[in-house]
């Protein structure tokens, strides 16, 4: 239980919830990151591309501003090679496109709408993630 950060994590979660609420109240859109990003490339209408692009710019800027004032230290992971990052990234991309969402779209927005589809997806990717970490630790002996 080292590095347990309940307060900042809860506050961060609430900010994410406010973001999802703002996007729905103003634009009528689900704040699903994988869908928003995929839409920049998949959707043809320019106005559709524009708001998605603006959201991504905001996302990068918001995290960067935070990191400027409160530097974020990420410990180096010995076993994570570039090859593993590429494979993992590909799986995340194919998986979110196939399953129609990620931790934000299914996890936050979907559960908040009581969508059975999103609740099922969230349980499934959590279980798959937990199993994967268990197996990785088992085989590299961490």
């Amino acid at each position: 239980m080292e590095n347990f950060t309940p307060y900042s994590s809860l506050a961060g979660g609430i900010l994410i919830g406010i973001s999802a609420s703002v996007l729905m109240l103003l634009n009528g859109r689900i704040a699903g990151i994988s869908g928003i990003i995929a839409g920049i490339f998949n959707v043809s209408a320019l106005s559709e591309k524009a708001w998605r692009f603006a959201f991504v710019i905001g996302l990068i800027a918001g995290a960067s501003v935070y990191a400027y004032y409160f530097p974020i230290e990420v410990a180096v992971r010995e076993h994570v090679s570039t090859g593993l990052l590429v494979i993992g990234g590909l799986l995340v991309g194919v998986g979110t496109a196939m399953g129609g969402g990620c931790t934000s779209g299914h996890g936050i927005c979907g559960i908040s709408r009581f969508s059975l589809r999103s609740i099922t997806a969230t349980m499934t990717f959590l279980l798959a993630g937990i199993t994967t970490v268990y197996l990785v630790n088992y085989f590299i002996g961490a």
Partner: peptide, 29 residues
């Protein structure tokens, strides 16, 4: 839906990034 969620979960567990944090981190790391 289920296969997609499994593939995503495996990738997430392997590298520790889901789409939001990966994109958000581009600007500072």
């Amino acid at each position: 839906l289920l296969s997609g969620a499994v593939l995503f979960g495996v990738g997430w567990g392997l590298i520790g990034y889901c789409p939001g944090p990966a994109v958000a981190s581009i600007g500072f790391r």
